[in-house]
Amino acid sequence: MTLTREPPRRQRLEPYLFVLPAVFFVIGILGYGVFSGTLMSLFRVDLRYAETPFVWLDNYRMLLSDGGFQNSFVRTLVFVAGSVGIGFLLALLFSLAIFRCRRSAHFFKALTLVPFLVSGIATAVIFRFLFGGAAGVINHVLDMVGVERILFLAHPDLALLVTILAQVWTIFPLAALLLHAGLLSIDPDLFDAAKVDGASAFYVFLRIMMPIIAPMIGVSLMWLSFASFNVFDITLALTGGGPGRATEVLAVYMYNVGFRQLRYSLGSSVMVIILMLNVVVSMALLRLFKR
């Protein structure tokens, strides 16, 4: 039996003291924003009127009965599912590829990160050059091989797909690096043991790598979904929410309602809904990938 002496009280409190400024910072900035936004969603705050009466859940009722909001909600779910699905697949492929790189791994890691460093507006411009108009790179290539021009940004479904691709391009690098960090944490002896036992590469991937990096998978999926629920700049600059309202995801809808129509409390209600979606999905992912 070993007796472990409990550290003195001051030593036990030290870590919390170091964390305290960050906690204050988060509560001060994020907490205040969320709290005041949630509170605002219970009032009618409309810059056109001086009065701000308490309206309980009227803003939410109004949203749920609004065709524009319903459309944005569905579009957002499709957008997030697409971005997370494609983004995760790409991230996994890239992380495995980098993991296999014996030489220049650092170079490729840095290279993978480049799209993440490009701003949303610049990404939108790049994708407009790629997919927009007769002179767009993709259509130019298609024209060279005799394929008729595809109206990527004029077709509702294709425009949504292009927006998803633009979003994936900018968010998957961080997910790839998270997965890569998980892969690096695997004890190399496990691979050697599996090799001795004659396990196939697919078996190693499925039975050894995936379970071990499960928490990192959870974190990268959380990042991908969080970034996709909140996407605003790429969509606004690439399609403006169109054609029709095919790419008007919730964040764009929130911007239009809150900042163009000056209906602040309605915008706040959308913010609360986006926050709830983020929280629910993140909690589900944490629970699912808890080791």
Binding site: R149, F152, G240, P243
Partner: peptide, 12 residues
């Protein structure tokens, strides 16, 4: 008009 005019802004 360009068939993609539905995605055009002032710049285009």
């Amino acid at each position: 008009v360009d068939p993609e005019v539905i995605a055009w802004g002032a710049g285009q």
